[in-house]
Computed example of a mutant assay.
Amino acid sequence: MGHPTVPLIYTYAHSQRKKDKSSRLDPYPPNDNLNNALGAIRVLGLELIEDELKPHLNTVLTNIKERNKGAAEQVVISGILPILALSLRTRGPLTVLTAKLVAELAKESVIRKGFGDSGLCTALLSVMTSPDQEVLFHAARAISRTSYDSSKLQELLLRRGAVPRLVAILLRFPDEEALEEVCLQALCNVSGMGVAEEAGMVWERGASVRPGESVFHGVSPHTCGFASSVILVCVSQWAPGQYAVKIEVFQRCSSSFWSLHGNRQGAGWFRFSTLGSCSNLYKVIKFSTKNVPRTKSLRTRVFHSLL
């Protein structure tokens, strides 16, 4: 009766955390530096003062890149995602750092689930007309990671014009390999391909057969060594601001594979799928061919876009 049981329990738990960080009472020990940085961003975020915010953004970036235990959960609880979206839309001195941070945050599934509601998806798209290639690189990487395994975010990005923006970057910077590769990866993931960065996809330009057409090949070797997935991306611009995108997946089998199966004709190819499903093909083309006359049927518009 009258004993301060609650304070005693709290004191005991608090002391146990100090003694043993792996205690079951606290599976994710708080990171004071990260907590302080998140709190500062939340308080100072609306003012977007570079000198004050930059070190805090860097602290969050370091914790996420090092995948410190519990860091992703702390970011989610902090509620800073709308502030990061505001920073991107402002296009101020913090844009590059913010885009880089958002790209790292997008690696964490628990964080990227909130990208749609926080406005980060549309904010990323808003910076994709920037002349700064570093901003474009990080924004495209963030979009690729965001759309990797979420049909909801894929649909949002498609409706907001992700495909024309990514294609426009491909056409604006044909000699920038790193930027080209991340945009192609983003195109595949927005379309529902689910191409993981860990797949080791290697991209190269192919020969085009039509004026205004760009062809890209992406090869992802299989660990068994007998076959590899090959993605073919065809991009055509047939009017200012209007693009057709065709993505196909093939399976390439090596000569070793065919030899094991009694075929001595050497390496062979066969089509594996087209965008994973026909519905995705329609979806990508539909949202990447704006300003087509409404009098045409969807079937005619799709056919015309593939000419």
Rank of each mutant, 00 (worst) to 15 (best):
H3I: 11
P7N: 07
L8K: 09
L8P: 00
A13Q: 11
A13C: 13
R17P: 01
S23W: 12
R24G: 15
N31I: 09
L34K: 03
N35G: 15
G39I: 06
I41K: 02
I41Q: 01
L46R: 14
L46D: 15
L46V: 13
L48H: 05
I49A: 12
D51N: 07
E52M: 10
L53R: 01
P55K: 08
N58L: 10
V60K: 01
V60E: 02
R67Q: 15
R67T: 14
R67W: 07
V75I: 15
S78H: 04
G79L: 04
P82R: 04
L84T: 06
L88G: 03
R89I: 08
L94F: 11
L94D: 01
L97H: 08
T98Y: 05
A99F: 03
K100E: 14
V102K: 01
E104T: 02
E104Q: 11
S109I: 11
S109L: 11
R112S: 14
F115P: 05
F115R: 09
L120C: 15
L125S: 05
V127C: 07
L136W: 02
F137H: 13
A140F: 02
R141H: 10
I143N: 08
I143E: 07
T146Y: 01
D149Q: 02
K152I: 12
Q154F: 04
L158H: 04
R160W: 10
V163F: 06
L166D: 02
I169M: 06
I169E: 05
L171M: 10
F173W: 11
P174Y: 00
A178D: 14
E180C: 14
E180D: 06
N189F: 04
M193I: 12
G194W: 00
E198W: 00
E198K: 00
S208P: 06
V209H: 10
R210Y: 00
S214N: 09
F216M: 08
F216N: 05
F216E: 06
G218T: 03
S220Q: 09
T223E: 15
T223C: 07
A227T: 15
S229N: 11
W238I: 13
G241S: 03
A244W: 01
Q251W: 00
Q251P: 00
C253E: 06
H261I: 00
F270Q: 10
C278S: 12
S279N: 08
N280K: 04
Y282D: 11
S288R: 02
T289V: 07
K290G: 12
N291G: 04
K296L: 15
S297C: 04
S305R: 05
